[in-house]
Every structure is written in structure tokens, then in C-alpha cells.
Design a protein around this nucleic acid. Structure first.
Lengths: 215, 215
DNA sequence: ACCTGAACACCGTTCAAGT
DNA sequence: ACCTGAACACCGTTCAAGT
């Protein structure tokens, strides 16, 4: 319940909301909790935001703005596409609980439009017509978000997370190997693979190669 | 507030919850609302479910169980993988607001395990080792869910949805064509492409081709 | 086995009012 | 311009009790 330093602003509230979400999950982000955290009454929030939806929009915009979009180069389209998707991933990865918010502002926020523009241009260059490029671009953005946001180990204390993984491994490993041979064999990987560097880079490759495959 | 026919059961509650979510969005699915809908007090729910989390788990299981998993054939791995992903998509597509729930039971529910087993086997056959197969399988399931669940036109009345699309088209179309040439050119497709058959089939192809690309 | 009554600690939001 | 007080209609959940 840190008293506010001097004044309240949209930026400080959004920052506070992001920290809160990272620490305790998105469901901890509450108008009343944010007020308390800033030493202020809940109603004070309504001067800075119309409602909770606008707060979430602002968080989404903050996330998208944090993407460090690489400059265009002379490299082939797939290398550049991979770099852009990687940049989005890098921005979202520290914030799994809020990653899912990003989608609501991709085609609204300034940086989101820049991003969409670059992706569309590269897909064009890859040989997709306008319609297919739009469809693929939309999906690519959703997928990268899914890559981060679907992590089931979201907002768990590290020890809790470790024990969850162990438990999951045990459950999967103890299934009938006759019925589920591949699941049992891959039990450690299935329980563990989320959030590993490997996981992300393999699946970014999958997406980029997928574009190549449909072009 | 339909009075209950005879008795309350987990299945009727889950069914009611799914209908409610489809009609008014996931946020309308409330212990109290479900009780009211069944002519019963909120506390009655707690005899059938431990808490709201278990209700959501049950909904997830219901969704996964509704996947019409195709039998194995002699066709090549990519054709079969495509068919499985298509079956998952077909099951989730009628329920965009709840699609995101599916992930929490893929590796728990019976049908989810069958599904994972088949996908892992096909990825193996495609040439991925156990680790990479586990990572790709996890992502493929997330992606298909993202394909359906990220639809921003979720739980809107058809007329509202139409006007939203029109509005979006107008906004994107009125951007600076100098700065965002591809976005402006693809404005109608970007605003519209969600939920079209085209969108789904193109991006399922993308995923399957992506697997081919990394194997 | 299946459900209710009463109570608790939370939500988001509005509206009038204070400085 | 920025914030508060009081109030409203909602949440999920517990616990003891009824049939």
C-alpha cells in the first residue's frame, strides 16, 4: 500500500497494474487494489480511466509499445519475419499473465500498426496475395501471443511451479504405456517444455517455415 | 430463470454454462447466474462442484470430449495431422468464448490424452525427436485454440458485429497510406478475416507445413 | 444425498460533492 | 484538474442447518 509519491498518472497506474499482474496474476489487477496500492480511493481511478476496459486497453498498448521492432534490412523475408516475431516474443515473454491482452490493440496502437505493416509487407514479398497475407498476419500475431500466454505455469511461485511440473510428470508417466505410448515416453518434455528457450525458437521456426509452405 | 425440470446434475450445469457463455460471453458464467438459471440457490452449485475453477475445468473437459477424433488411416502423416487439427477446430469453433478453456484439460481429460497421443505419434513419424515433438505438439494445440479463441468479435450480437467490422474497416482504411500502405490496402481483409472458412483452412495449412519445415 | 439461509469479504461503477 | 464519501448491484465462498 505504498503511498503515492506526488501525483497519480495513467502511466504510473499502468506500470503498477503490470507489476501487479506479473507478481500475482491478471485477476489481482483490480480497480480497488490499484487504488490501495497507490494510497488513493478506488474512485480516483475513474478520473484517469473511463472504466476497467480502458485500463486493460492501456496495458495492452504498453505491452505493444515495448516491442523493439528491428529496422528493415536487405536480408530475405524469412529472416526478417523471424526477427520481428522474435522481437514480439521477447517483449511479451516477461509478462505471461498479460500477454493475451496484446491482441486487443495490435491494429489500434501506433506500434502495433507499424508491426502489422512490416509483417504484411514481408508476407507480400513471400508471395502471398493481400487476402492471404492479412489472414496469415493475424494468425501469426495470435500465435506468438499463444506461445507465451498459454503457459499454464502462469503466476505461480517458483517452488509451486517446480512441484507442479514434477506432479504433472508423475501423472503423465504413470499412464498406461499400452494406450498412450508416446505421451508416456514424452512425459518429462510435455510437463516441462513451456517457457524453455527451445520451445520458443522451435515454434517460431515452425511459423516461419509454415509461411514458406503456403506461399 | 427456467425452473429445474427434476434434479440438478454436473452435466446439466455444464451444459447450461456452455449455452450461457455462447450467448453472453464467458463473463456471464457466474455461480449465482447459473443457480438462478436453474431455479436454485447459489450454494447448491457447491454440492456439484468444489469451486468455480472446477466448473471451468468441467467445461474444458466437455469441450475436449466433443472433438470427433478421426480414426488412424494409411494416409501420410501430414494429411492425418491436418485432419486431427481440423477436428479440434471444428469442435471449438461453435464456442469462441470458451475455446481458451480447452488448454487446461488437454493433458488431463481422456480424450485430450488420446488426441495428444495421436499428434505425438504423427510428429514422430514426421521425423521429430521426442523433445521436439512434445514442444511442437503443445504449440499446435495452443495455436488451434488461438485460431478460434482470439476472435475479437466474440459474444457480440450479429448486428453489433457487422457494425464493428465496418467501423474497423473505416478506421484502418483512413490511416496514412504513406506510412501504412499494406495495412490500408488490406483494411477490408484485416477487419473481416476472423472466423471465415478461408482464415481457418489457410492457417491450418500453415501449421502443418510448418511441421514439415522443421522436420 | 441434495439443498437452503445468513453472513463475509470482495468486485465495478455512479453521482454528488469537496479542494 | 484531481480526488473523496456514500451508495448500488453485483461477485465467490463458508458454515451451519434443514429434508
Amino acid at each position: 500500500m505504498a503511498k503515492r509519491s506526488v501525483r497519480l498518472s495513467r502511466e504510473t497506474i499502468v506500470g503498477c497494474a503490470m507489476d501487479l499482474a506479473d507478481a500475482e496474476g491478471l485477476e489481482a489487477v483490480t480497480i480497488r487494489r490499484l487504488a490501495q496500492e497507490n494510497g488513493v480511493t478506488p474512485m480516483a481511478m475513474y478520473w484517469h480511466f473511463n472504466d476497467k476496459e480502458s485500463l486493460l486497453d492501456a496495458m495492452a498498448e504498453h505491452l505493444i509499445a515495448s516491442v523493439d521492432l528491428p529496422e528493415p534490412t536487405e536480408e530475405p523475408w524469412d529472416v526478417q519475419l523471424r526477427a520481428i516475431l522474435g522481437a514480439i516474443l521477447a517483449a511479451l515473454r516477461p509478462h505471461p499473465p498479460t500477454a493475451g491482452l496484446a491482441m486487443r490493440q495490435v491494429l489500434v496502437a501506433e506500434q502495433g500498426l507499424r508491426l502489422a505493416e512490416r509483417v504484411l509487407e514481408l508476407l507480400n514479398r513471400a508471395g502471398l496475395d493481400a487476402r492471404r497475407a492479412a489472414e496469415a498476419a493475424t494468425f501469426l500475431l495470435c500465435s506468438v501471443i499463444a506461445l507465451v500466454g498459454a503457459d499454464p505455469s502462469r503466476h505461480l511461485a517458483p517452488e509451486d511451479e517446480q512441484s507442479k511440473v514434477r506432479q504433472k510428470k508423475a501423472v503423465l508417466g504413470s499412464l498406461s504405456p499400452a494406450r498412450y505410448p508416446h505421451v508416456v515416453a514424452a512425459a518429462p518434455e510435455l510437463a516441462n517444455c513451456f517457457g524453455q528457450d527451445d520451445y520458443f525458437s522451435l515454434n517460431l521456426d515452425l511459423l516461419v517455415q509454415g509461411v514458406r509452405g503456403i506461399s
